[in-house]
């Protein structure tokens, strides 16, 4: 094992070896999760707190299930609903948490960098479950695991990420991860949804789906949030679907065995055609959800091992 980090705040600070270590361990948890008895005790005695400053059903459920299967005591805190409204600052929240002696803290926050800030102030291991538009590392890891299982490797693949890149932490983490693993990345979307400076990230940028999808091995669709559809960033939902929604015609430009991914929740008929999402020969969307639990188990297991090893050389 080579994974020495104290926290999992982003893909940015992980090495390719860290990533491989995480994915290899996650494979073992995939096997466990498919067995009749899905329980181990590697986190027994440890306390995991899920703190979501932003609503999330899927990610929170995935972390909760991961913690429970590993034997941790799991608590969900709905922060969005409570203390923030009373004017408590993030630092105060961190101090309150410290007093509860958690071992693992899973945090989602609507602002970029907020999870880093929290991690500086608490004594436990912190897992970033998404901060603003910055990073969502476990999503990128579960996407990587899904791709690796489908394609047998993570290098020398052509991977197209399509849609609202600008507002997407999923895109950022995926770009970092897949870049580190030496795949070829393409970003496709209208210029209003491509972040400035993206061309300097070592990716190719396209505003045309047919061109961008040509010979792609992996097509990763992103969710387009409703509030972006009303003329602010794109003229309308229907024009977006026409130009950027993934349908059979557009997908035909990718390789015949290309897989289709989506981090969910999907807007059928906005960014993806329902029949493609449901096509078991192309879509790996359900598998992504399954991999999510396994990857989160692996991440928490590794961080807990580092916790138990005591204060070692900390590499955030």
């Amino acid at each position: 094992m080579t994974f020495h980090a104290r926290h999992l705040l982003g893909i940015e600070h992980l090495s390719p070896l860290d990533i491989t270590t995480l994915l290899d361990l996650a494979e073992q948890y995939v096997t466990l999760n498919r067995a009749r008895n899905k329980h181990t005790d590697v986190l027994a005695g440890l306390t995991q707190i899920n703190m979501f400053f932003e609503n999330s059903t899927r990610t929170q459920a995935s972390f909760e299930l991961a913690g429970k299967r590993l034997g941790a005591d799991v608590m969900n805190m709905e922060v969005a609903a409570s203390s923030i409204k009373k004017g408590e600052t993030l630092i105060d929240t961190a101090l309150t948490l410290n007093a509860m002696h958690p071992d693992l803290l899973v945090v989602r926050h609507p602002q970029s960098g907020a999870v880093d800030l929290l991690a500086q102030k608490v004594n436990c291991a912190v897992l970033n479950a998404g901060d603003g538009r910055h990073e969502h590392p476990t999503q990128a890891l579960l996407d990587a695991l899904t791709i690796r299982r489908a394609k047998g490797r993570l290098h020398r693949l052509t991977i197209a990420i399509c849609g609202d890149i600008a507002h997407s932490r999923v895109a950022r983490s995926n770009i970092l991860l897949l870049g580190k693993m030496e795949s070829r990345l393409r970003l496709i979307g209208p210029p209003t949804l491509i972040p400035s400076g993206a061309a300097d990230w070592g990716v190719e940028v396209y505003d045309d789906m047919a061109e961008g999808l040509r010979d792609a091995d992996v097509v990763m669709m992103l969710r387009l949030q409703k509030e972006r559809m009303d003329g602010g960033f794109i003229p309308s939902g229907r024009e977006y679907y026409h130009r950027y929604g993934l349908d059979a015609a557009k997908l035909s430009h990718a390789k015949p065995d290309a897989i289709v991914m989506h981090p969910g929740p999907m807007n059928r008929g906005v960014e993806i055609d329902g029949t493609i999402a449901d096509d078991i020969n192309r879509s790996v969307i359900q598998e992504q959800v399954e991999m999510g639990v396994a990857v989160r188990m692996a991440a928490m297991d590794l961080l807990a091992r580092n916790l138990r090893a005591g204060p070692v050389e900390v590499m955030v």
């Binding site: 960098g113 901060d131 603003g132 950022r172 400035s196 400076g197």
Partner: peptide, 15 residues
Amino acid sequence: TSGKFASLRGLPAVS
């Protein structure tokens, strides 16, 4: 300030 760094950090940026 908009550019590679601000985009990576996910910060709202100005040209």
